[in-house]
Amino acid sequence: MAALDLAFASDRAPERAVVLDHCVISVSDWARSNAFYRDVLGATVVPQGQGFAYRFGAQRLNVHGPGLDPAPVAKVPVVPGGSDLCFRWTGTAADAAAHLADHDVPVELGPTSRTGAYGAGTSVYFRDPDGSLLEFITYSPPDEG
Score class of each variant (00 low, 15 high):
2 A>M: 01
3 A>T: 12
4 L>H: 11
4 L>G: 05
5 D>F: 14
5 D>R: 14
6 L>W: 00
8 F>M: 11
10 S>T: 12
11 D>E: 14
12 R>S: 10
13 A>G: 03
15 E>F: 01
15 E>A: 15
16 R>A: 09
16 R>H: 14
17 A>R: 11
18 V>E: 03
18 V>Q: 04
19 V>R: 03
20 L>S: 01
20 L>W: 01
24 V>M: 09
24 V>L: 08
25 I>D: 01
25 I>P: 00
26 S>K: 09
29 D>L: 04
29 D>V: 07
31 A>L: 03
31 A>T: 12
31 A>W: 03
32 R>Y: 05
38 R>E: 12
39 D>L: 01
41 L>D: 04
41 L>W: 00
41 L>Q: 04
42 G>K: 10
43 A>H: 05
44 T>N: 04
44 T>A: 14
48 Q>M: 15
49 G>C: 12
49 G>T: 15
49 G>E: 14
51 G>I: 02
54 Y>M: 06
57 G>E: 10
57 G>M: 00
58 A>L: 08
59 Q>E: 11
60 R>D: 02
60 R>C: 00
63 V>Y: 00
64 H>W: 14
66 P>K: 10
69 D>L: 07
70 P>W: 11
70 P>K: 12
73 V>F: 09
74 A>D: 15
75 K>G: 03
76 V>R: 06
76 V>G: 01
79 V>N: 08
79 V>Q: 15
79 V>F: 08
79 V>I: 13
80 P>R: 04
80 P>D: 02
82 G>M: 09
83 S>Y: 07
83 S>M: 03
83 S>C: 13
85 L>F: 09
86 C>L: 06
86 C>T: 12
87 F>T: 04
88 R>K: 09
89 W>G: 04
90 T>Y: 11
90 T>G: 03
91 G>K: 08
91 G>V: 10
92 T>M: 11
93 A>E: 10
95 D>E: 15
96 A>G: 03
96 A>N: 07
97 A>W: 04
98 A>M: 06
98 A>I: 02
98 A>N: 08
98 A>K: 12
98 A>Y: 03
101 A>K: 15
101 A>S: 14
102 D>R: 11
102 D>H: 07
103 H>M: 02
104 D>A: 08
106 P>E: 06
107 V>H: 02
108 E>K: 08
109 L>H: 01
109 L>Q: 02
110 G>R: 02
110 G>L: 09
111 P>H: 09
111 P>N: 02
111 P>W: 10
113 S>Q: 13
113 S>T: 13
114 R>V: 13
115 T>F: 12
115 T>D: 13
117 A>Q: 05
117 A>H: 00
117 A>R: 13
117 A>M: 03
118 Y>S: 10
118 Y>H: 11
118 Y>W: 12
119 G>N: 01
122 T>W: 03
123 S>I: 00
126 F>M: 05
126 F>Q: 02
127 R>V: 08
127 R>K: 14
127 R>H: 07
128 D>F: 02
132 S>K: 10
133 L>Y: 01
133 L>Q: 14
133 L>W: 08
133 L>D: 10
134 L>M: 09
136 F>K: 11
137 I>K: 03
137 I>Y: 00
138 T>F: 08
139 Y>L: 06
140 S>N: 06
140 S>F: 04
141 P>E: 13
144 E>G: 03
144 E>P: 01
144 E>N: 12
145 G>T: 13
